[in-house]
C-alpha cells in the first residue's frame, strides 16, 4: 500500500486535556472509516491531517509533505469539518463560488465547479438563498460541497452524516463510496458503526486518543459481536416471555424489571438472539412495547474491548 497519509508517534493535547497520543498510522487509497466514541480523538486527528492544528509531538505527512502551514497542499486535500459553521450572510452559491475561486478556478470554470458541487449535494434549487435560512441538514450538505468542489485526491469528512435526513444519508454514503471507487483516498469519521460499515470494510478504531485496532471491519465486528450484550424488552407479559426465552442457547441470563413491566436479557450472540426473539414474538403473538440495547453503543463496546 502506498501511504497517502502517514502519522508517526503523533500526539496532541490541549493544556491538560489529551487529544491523541502516540498514533502511528498509514492510510492509502480507498475509503477508511475512523470509528470511535465522542471525545475519542477523531476530530483532533482529522484537524491535524487538515492542517488546522499543529502536532505537539511526532509528525503527520500527506503526500509526503507536512500539512501545517503548507497551503499549496490544499489543492489536493478536501476537508469537511464537523462543526456547524457558515458565513450566514452569504448565499450558498456565493460561499461555494468564493471557495472555488480561492482554489484557483477563475470565471466560468469557478462557476461550473460551484454548480457541479451544489448539484451533487442537492442544493442547486436553494443556491441563491442566504445560508442563514438553510436547515441544519442543508448546511451539512453545503459543507460537504465545499470539500469536494475541487475534486481532491484526499477527502477527509468529519461526521458527514450528522443531522442529514435519511434520504440524503443514503445518497451521501453512495457519493462517498463512488469517490472511493475513483481510486482516491477518503477518510470518514463517525461514532456510529453501521454508518461506517455501509461505506467501507477498512476501519480504524480510535479510543481515548489512541489507535485501538485497524483493519478489516469483519474482524472488528467479530470482536464486537462477542461482547456480552444486554437487551431490554418492555412488555406486559415479562414472565411468559422469559419462560419462552430461557431455553435459548443464546442467553446467559435474564433479569426482571422492578416494575414488572419488562425484562433484561444477557446474551453473547446478539444477532442470533435478535433473530430468535423476533421469531418468538411473531409465533407467540406476545407484544413487545419497546426493545432497546442499553449497551449497544460504541462506548460500551470499547470499554469491553479494552477490558474496563
Amino acid at each position: 500500500m502506498t501511504a497517502v497519509l502517514r502519522a508517526e508517534k503523533l500526539s496532541k493535547w490541549y493544556g491538560n486535556i489529551l487529544g491523541i497520543s502516540d498514533i502511528n498510522l498509514e492510510i492509502g487509497s480507498g475509503i477508511t472509516g475512523l470509528l470511535g466514541p465522542n471525545g475519542a480523538g477523531k476530530s483532533t486527528f482529522l484537524k491535524i491531517a487538515a492542517g488546522q492544528l499543529k502536532p505537539k509531538l511526532g509528525a503527520l505527512t500527506v503526500f509526503g509533505e507536512a500539512v501545517y502551514g503548507n497551503p499549496r497542499l490544499f489543492r489536493r486535500i478536501g476537508f469537511c469539518p464537523e462543526h456547524d459553521s457558515a458565513y450566514a450572510e452569504m448565499s450558498g452559491r456565493g460561499f461555494i463560488l468564493l471557495l472555488a475561486r480561492l482554489h484557483g478556478f477563475a470565471g466560468a470554470a469557478a462557476a461550473a465547479k460551484a454548480e457541479k458541487a451544489l448539484a451533487t449535494v442537492g442544493l442547486l434549487d436553494s443556491q441563491e438563498r442566504a445560508i442563514k435560512g438553510y436547515s441544519f441538514g442543508m448546511r451539512q450538505r453545503l459543507r460537504l460541497a465545499s470539500s469536494i468542489l475541487h475534486e481532491p485526491e484526499l477527502l477527509m469528512l468529519d461526521e458527514p452524516l450528522r443531522g442529514v435526513d435519511p434520504v440524503w444519508r443514503i445518497r451521501i454514503m453512495q457519493l462517498i463510496k463512488d469517490y472511493g471507487k475513483l481510486g482516491r483516498t477518503v477518510i470518514v469519521s463517525s461514532h456510529i458503526l453501521p454508518e461506517i460499515e455501509a461505506m467501507t470494510n477498512e476501519i480504524v478504531l480510535i479510543h481515548q486518543g489512541k489507535i485501538f485496532a485497524k483493519g478489516d471491519i469483519h474482524r472488528i465486528r467479530g470482536l464486537i459481536d462477542s461482547h456480552p450484550h444486554q437487551v431490554s424488552i418492555r412488555t406486559a407479559q415479562p414472565r411468559q416471555l422469559a419462560a419462552r426465552l430461557i431455553g435459548s442457547e443464546f442467553i446467559s441470563g435474564i433479569e426482571f424489571a422492578a416494575d414488572n413491566r419488562g425484562l433484561t436479557v444477557h446474551t453473547n450472540q446478539r444477532d442470533p438472539f435478535f433473530t430468535a426473539l423476533m421469531g418468538l414474538l411473531a409465533e407467540s403473538g406476545m407484544e413487545a412495547d419497546e426493545i432497546t440495547s442499553p449497551d449497544d453503543n460504541l462506548q460500551a463496546v470499547f470499554d469491553y474491548l479494552i477490558g474496563k
Partner: peptide, 15 residues
C-alpha cells in the same frame, strides 16, 4: 466565533 476559519485555511491561499 463562527468557526468559519477552517474554510479560509483549507484553501491553497496564504494566511
Amino acid at each position: 466565533d463562527n468557526k468559519t476559519l477552517v474554510y479560509l485555511t483549507t484553501v491553497p491561499v496564504r494566511r
